[in-house]
């Protein structure tokens, strides 16, 4: 059995983790962390309130574009954006080809109920499969980025972010909303101004690798048109409203259930919007030795939002059939999966 912190679920291969004589990890022992985070949340709330006041006063068609996956967190965020903050939201969904039917039903039901417009962007199945396959099998991203997220998820989210940024710029929308939680993103990232130049620079190496294993067409999904970048004076601000709330999964689900949201059945315990998740997590564990949800779930345990047993069951219950069905769909052989770890280690 894998060694884990006796308080949270950080396992022995998690970067930088160490345990004391009682088996408590170095992250749980840092008692000042939660207070520092609380202060940062309060400051972020003030910044968000100020920003929303300014943007709402502009009376544009849309105040914000929302990255809407149809999962529980983004559904709750959309609900908050419309009902609590009174924003006019354009929701945006990236259909990566692996969204469960139930999640699509949820997207339609929730956007209709909230009176929100929805845009769907679906890359071709062939291109999406190539991106997923390359992200899973080759060392595209640096290992520090992988502390919070699996490689395939990172490729998908980078595409979502780029496309949402494009929509925001083309439609003159000042805010991009996302449904990330603390643990998924650092506390300083609750609200921040997009810095596309730095983003482009920091992604140059990974984009080049992803392009190498897929094709030149990749830039269509991950880069903005040069003219759009050149003509942009004011970049949109990213806001993660859910990070301002202190809610358990049960409370989130209870709130959105009143809108008609229903949990899909053919996904794992860590996802309510993507069938790739089990596959991504298994590959991540194979390569790095820990589950990409450990950091987020451990953070929730420290905040009292989930109990340790439930968190462990989420990262340790993987359906082998679900994994195999995705591997077959991607035409990835057992040998290729077996080699993934060694490719990462040698950096080939």
């Amino acid at each position: 059995m894998k060694k884990r912190c006796t308080h949270c679920i950080l396992s022995e291969h998690f970067p930088g983790v160490s345990y004391d004589s009682e088996g408590v990890c170095s992250f749980c022992r840092d008692k000042s962390f939660l207070q520092t985070e609380e202060n940062a949340i309060q400051k972020a709330q003030e910044q968000v309130d100020e920003l929303l006041k300014t943007v709402k006063a502009q009376s544009n068609t849309y105040d914000a574009v929302m990255l809407y996956s149809g999962g529980k967190d983004s559904t709750y965020t959309l609900y908050q954006a419309v009902k609590k903050y009174g924003l006019k939201v354009l929701s945006f969904t990236l259909d990566n080809g692996y969204i469960p039917n139930q999640t699509f039903d949820n997207i339609v039901k929730i956007t209709d109920k909230l009176g929100v417009d929805n845009l769907i962007f679906r890359p071709s199945k062939e291109n999406m499969k190539a991106i997923v396959k390359a992200s899973a099998l080759y060392p595209i991203y640096n290992k520090r980025t992988m502390v919070r997220i699996s490689s395939v998820c990172n490729s998908c989210i980078s595409m979502v972010n780029t496309q949402a940024l494009r929509i925001a710029l083309e439609k003159n929308i000042s805010i991009i909303l996302a449904g990330f939680t603390l643990g998924q993103i650092p506390v300083n990232s609750i609200i921040y101004k997009n810095n596309y130049t730095f983003l482009e620079e920091s992604r140059a190496k990974s984009n080049s690798l992803l392009r190498k294993y897929t094709g030149e067409w990749l830039d269509t999904y991950y880069n903005l048109p040069t003219s759009l970048v050149k003509n942009t004076v004011e970049w949109p601000t990213m806001v993660n409203l859910l990070c301002l709330e202190k809610l358990s999964e049960e409370e989130i689900v209870a709130a959105i259930s009143t809108l008609g949201w229903t949990a899909p059945k053919n996904v794992d315990g860590c996802s309510s919007n993507c069938q790739l998740n089990t596959f991504n997590n298994v590959i991540h564990e194979k390569v790095y030795g820990y589950n990409p949800y450990e950091l987020e779930l451990s953070h929730m345990i420290r905040k009292g939002l989930i109990d340790r047993e439930t968190a462990i069951s989420k990262v340790e219950t993987m359906d082998p059939e679900l994994f195999k069905s995705i591997a077959d769909d991607l035409q990835i052989s057992e040998d290729e999966i077996g080699n993934a770890g060694s490719l990462y280690k040698t950096g080939k």
């Binding site: 640096n142 290992k143 520090r144 980025t145 993103i185 650092p186 300083n188 990232s189 921040y192 810095n195 730095f198 983003l199 920091s202 992604r203």
Partner: peptide
């Protein structure tokens, strides 16, 4: 390989 774009914000 130590920070990504989130790192810059942090």
């Amino acid at each position: 390989g130590i920070i990504d774009s989130f790192g810059l914000v942090e």
